[in-house]
Design a protein around this nucleic acid. Sequence first.
DNA 1: AAATCTATATTCCATAATGGAATATTATGA
DNA 2: TCATAATATTCCATTATGGAATATAGATTT
Lengths: 304, 304
Amino acid sequence: MEYRFLPDLKHLATLRAVVERGGVSEAARAMHIGQPAVTKRLRALDACYGMSLMQRDGRRLELTTAGTKVYNYARLVLDHQVSLLDDLELLRAGKNKLRVEVTFAIGEHMLPNLLLSFAESYPAYRIESRMGYSRRIQRHLATGLSDLALLEQAPDHPEILVQKWLDDELVLVCGPGHMLWGSDMIPMSELDNLRYVLSESQSSMRLTLDKALRDIGIDQLPITMEVGSTDTIVEMLQRGRHVSFLPRFAVDDSLISNTLYHIKIQGLRINRTLWIARTRSNLNSAVAEAFIHLLRENSCQTIQ
Amino acid sequence: MEYRFLPDLKHLATLRAVVERGGVSEAARAMHIGQPAVTKRLRALDACYGMSLMQRDGRRLELTTAGTKVYNYARLVLDHQVSLLDDLELLRAGKNKLRVEVTFAIGEHMLPNLLLSFAESYPAYRIESRMGYSRRIQRHLATGLSDLALLEQAPDHPEILVQKWLDDELVLVCGPGHMLWGSDMIPMSELDNLRYVLSESQSSMRLTLDKALRDIGIDQLPITMEVGSTDTIVEMLQRGRHVSFLPRFAVDDSLISNTLYHIKIQGLRINRTLWIARTRSNLNSAVAEAFIHLLRENSCQTIQ
DNA sequence: AAATCTATATTCCATAATGGAATATTATGA
DNA sequence: TCATAATATTCCATTATGGAATATAGATTT
């Protein structure tokens, strides 16, 4: 295209201001420049388009036919510039936001502290978090509905990139009213004789547990109840005579405060890894890097 | 609106060139500026929008998400600038054009010489001419379908401005075969005894003639034929025994070459004025002023 | 691994553009 | 005719621009 004689947007803005504010002097006031500068810009536009865009009407100026066409162009261009600035502002805001999805257990027990710490350390950033099942979390991540996920299983989606976050363990626990409170290590054969309250069969934790038990020849435990919330399970154990397998990070506080008891099993430890997952498209996200940095800092404190 | 940080179109054009031509150096070549100038313009756009619009991809640049939005804006703005320039070019061409409408008689006998003279004197201008009846000519003029008209009656439309062009006369003429060929002045009473070929009843000339005859008490002449073309009437007179009233400017040549005879009528001369008409909206037309100037020059020569 | 090539980024400097103060010009109203 | 209001022009100090020279960074070749 022709690269000569392209006007400046400030010149077009000046023409618009002269028309819409009723004169050169008013336009100068609105634009915070001198009246001679306004006149010069109008002359520069005339030169640019090779035609007179305004003419005297008494001691005022009015648009010529050519000027009307340029004025309309100026409005179009400047209105789109405003829209563009709005779009860029949204984009800028989006760069400081992170959409995080986590499993229910992580959401209940780990996320609150993480979010509080993050807000203190990075006030310019903002996290939007949601809890869900592992499969849905992976789907959202892969389709761009979230930016980062904390998972209890390694995702198997080709678009998702993972890095190890934490080691964790599923531990067998009971309340004070249970006969195994304070017991020594029990054999694996004893597991069939206990009554269980467990998490939902679709939860990550159950999938890991079911696999580990199959590995030692136990196809099915005597499950009295399946409950969605690990906090609810903890309360039920404390009041009743059931046991449960729960993530260590979910019961650490209860073990320390002696409201739950960790029943050790001879020859069996169910270890697993917690993962940080995201997609390739936001590898350059500063807010994601900051969040991961904080996750690592907190994992050092958690292990101590 | 916000008047700060408005980019230049040349900066937007530069961004577009970098994207569409595949790099900074290619864009510099296309725009006939140096490679550092291209880089600086990209940096200026970054500053303008407060965001990086391009990023390194190896040793090449690619658009960021923000840059894509600005690039789309650049295309919109520059494409509309091209359209605007086309519009202005049409407008510029229109300023050198004049749409002229004239009555049939003027069109046949005066306009050809006028147009030839005008084309020689003002080669940069262009005239589009049409012939028609006086009423339609006035209507076209008033509604902007033409710019200037040459009329044989003073127009009565409020939007139309007129200035006198020429004095003219309707003269009674006959051919060599007519008994009045070479006659002395005839009395008005003799008019009823002649046979006439006249122009159409709606023509300006007929309207003027009919009024003049009514003024002397003659309601109707013995009209053998009504013919649209004054040239055709002239030919019929030269071959037959009819007479006709025709404008002097239409028969001057025939009178001089003795192929028609001017029959003078005792106590009767039918004078009229030819008019130049236009509307207020093109009073500033340079080409109209030039044409009128030529009309006046030619009227001096015609009277001699 | 080092040298070379290619593309963009930065520095320095001469030139051009810009905007304001002062003043001139033009049109309107009293 | 004079005063007022609005725009246009001149002069000048300051800022912006673009190119030459050079630096930096990544890719390719040896």
